[in-house]
Each structure stands twice: as C-alpha cells, then as structure tokens.
C-alpha cells in the first residue's frame, strides 16, 4: 500500500532524505527483531530445559504448562490494557481471593452453578469499575487506588471467611479448572485462547483499542482531541476486572473452592509478564502478542526450574534478574532511537 501512496504524491511532497528513509527502515527492522528476540528467548528456554531434563519435552508437560499459565495470561491481558493507558493495577491477586469467596458464598446459598459463575464475573467487573471510577474521576494515581483496593479486598476475604477455605464441590464448576475439551485440551487453555483472540480484536481492530493507545501515548492531547479519557479509563478497568473474574473462576475450579489466601502475588506475575512482553510502563506502547509470549516465558521458566529441582526461592531470584535484563534491553534499544 505504501508504494501506491508514494506514486500518488507529487514530487515536492516527497521531500525526504535517503538517510531519513534508511532510519525508518532500520527502526522497523528493530521492531521485528524485538518481537523475534522475545520469541527466541522462549525457544531457547524450551531447548535448554529439553536438553537438561528428561521429562520436560513431552505433550503432557506442555499441556501442563499451558494450563498453569492460563490464569495469569487471562489476568495479564487485563493488566496489559491498564498499563497501556499508563496506569497500573496492584489489586489482581486480592481480587482473586475476594471474587472467589463471593462466588463460593453464592454457591453455598443457592447451589446454582450459573449464578455462581455470573457472580464471579459481575463482582470482577464491578470492582474493576470502582478502581477505574476512583482513578479517573478522583484523579488519583492508579497505583494508589489499586494499592488501597488490594488491601481492602484481601481484608474482606479474610473477614467473611474467618480465614478458612470454602469448598465448591460441583463438577459443573470445577470443570473450569480441571476439565478437558475433547479429552485433550484443558478448559482453562481454551478460555485463555478465546480471551486472547477477543483481546487481540479489541486492541488491534476496534476504535476503542486505538483510543487506549492514544490516551496512553498522550492523555492531554487525547482530551484535546475530544476523547472522553475518563470513560475510556473506566471501561478498561472494568474489562480488566471482568477478566480477573474469569481467572478467579478457573482458580477456584482448580482448587475446588475459594481461599482467602488465593492469588498471593498474582499481580506481580501479571505485571512481570506484561513488562517482559515489551509493554512500556509509561503507556501507549506494547503488543498483546508480547503479553502471551511473556506469560509463556514465565510458565516455561517455572516449570523447567521445578523439573531441574531448583528451589522456589532460587526461582524468584532468577525471575527478578530476567525482568531487569528485559527492561534494560528495552530502554537501551529505545535510547538508540
């Protein structure tokens, strides 16, 4: 299409030095390389663990990894949209706990599976709306809002359960955590794929997706261009909350109930994946495919290090080092531009 446009133009409009053209080409190459380098890290890790452990390279283990990353990936897509706005969400893990507990109570009270599922989704969306509303209308940094809701949600989850788990023993519900489609693909993986596809369409192929990038790139200019930045912010937080609700269902399904301790540190896993995926914390820049790859890298790393027999303490150290390395690489390549 670019050539066609060029042909349309009169000569005087093409007032661009070959040097500048080269630079643009170079930047494009770099962007492709970046996406590629992320993928190559993933492939490298897979090869590494396949060579060093006997049990890593198998269909069963891969299915296992995918199931393990599903919860994080679904939530991370929500967190991704929030970070794309230039905001952040620290309440993810606590919301897992609170949403799960609320759903479990509805299950205990009614025994209705559909109602239980709807409760989880609605609770997520409403709390997400609250986060967005307070952040946008109150002009409070999202860091502060969600730091507060993180504490509130976790606290309520403990208060109403007195700290003990509540079981949901209903195959119609636990199927979301442990079931298989066609006997091979885990249900959480199917949900993850559907969410990823819908998320990709929303981010890349709709007007709203473009608005998210615009607000994250320059909120003031977006406002001056007539975008309702508050509304956009609130909708993004609501969608993210809905996705946390979905993650909560899978988590509760897998555990066979709700725990007030569920999801400790889940927000950090999601944020880590988003950053690893190349999304800029200052907003306006990032790709949803990067989020998926980021989640897979963490999943492979967790699984592989487990198989090698490395303690979970060491795993945390290694994950931390990888985050710093990834962000260093990111800022370095930005500075070169």
């Amino acid at each position: 299409m670019a050539q066609q446009v060029l042909a349309n133009k009169t000569k005087e409009t093409i007032d661009i030095s070959s040097e500048q053209a080269k630079l643009i080409k170079k930047n494009k190459r770099k962007e492709i390389l970046r996406q590629f380098s992320l993928l190559s890290i993933l492939v490298l890790l897979i090869i590494l663990f396949s060579v060093t452990t006997a049990s890593f390279f198998s269909v069963d283990n891969f299915t296992n990894i995918l199931r393990q990353v599903a919860v994080t990936t679904i939530a991370a897509i929500g967190v991704f949209m929030i970070i794309l706005l230039g905001d952040i969400d620290l309440s993810v893990g606590s919301l897992y706990a609170l949403i799960g507990v609320m759903a479990a109570f509805v299950w205990q009270g009614t025994g209705n599976t559909v109602l239980t599922l709807l409760t989880a989704l609605a609770a997520g969306a409403i709390i997400g709306f609250g986060n967005g509303f307070i952040t946008a209308k109150g002009k409070i940094p999202a860091f502060v809002t969600t730091l507060a809701t993180m504490g509130i949600a976790r606290g309520i989850a403990y208060i109403v359960t007195s700290g003990s788990p509540i079981g949901i023993v209903e195959p119609g519900f636990t199927i979301f955590g442990t079931g298989y489609v066609g006997g091979i693909i885990p249900v959480p993986v199917v949900i993850m794929i559907v969410v990823f596809i819908l998320g990709s369409i929303l981010i890349n192929n709709t007007r709203f997706g473009r608005y998210i990038y615009a607000v994250g790139g320059n909120a003031q200019a977006s406002h001056w261009s007539g975008l309702n930045t508050n509304k956009i912010r609130i909708i993004v937080f609501t969608i993210a909350g809905l996705l946390y609700g979905l993650s909560s269902i899978i988590l509760a399904g897998r555990l066979g109930g709700a725990l007030p301790t569920a999801g400790q540190g889940a927000e950090m896993d999601a944020i880590t994946a988003v950053i690893l995926g190349g999304t800029s914390l200052s907003g306006g820049k990032g790709k949803i495919s990067g989020v998926l790859i980021g989640c897979l890298i963490i999943g492979v790393l967790n699984n592989g290090l487990d198989l090698i027999g490395l303690s979970s303490y060491w795993q945390q150290v290694i994950k931390g080092i990888i985050i710093i390395a990834a962000v260093l690489y990111d800022t370095k390549s930005k500075n070169k531009n």
């Binding site: 990038y213 615009a214 790139g217 320059n218 003031q220 200019a221 977006s222 001056w224 306006g284 820049k285």
Partner: peptide, 8 residues
Amino acid sequence: KYGFIPGK
C-alpha cells in the same frame, strides 16, 4: 503537549 500522540 496537546497536539499529537508521540510515536504514533
């Protein structure tokens, strides 16, 4: 500040 979205 108010005119355009940088990087786009």
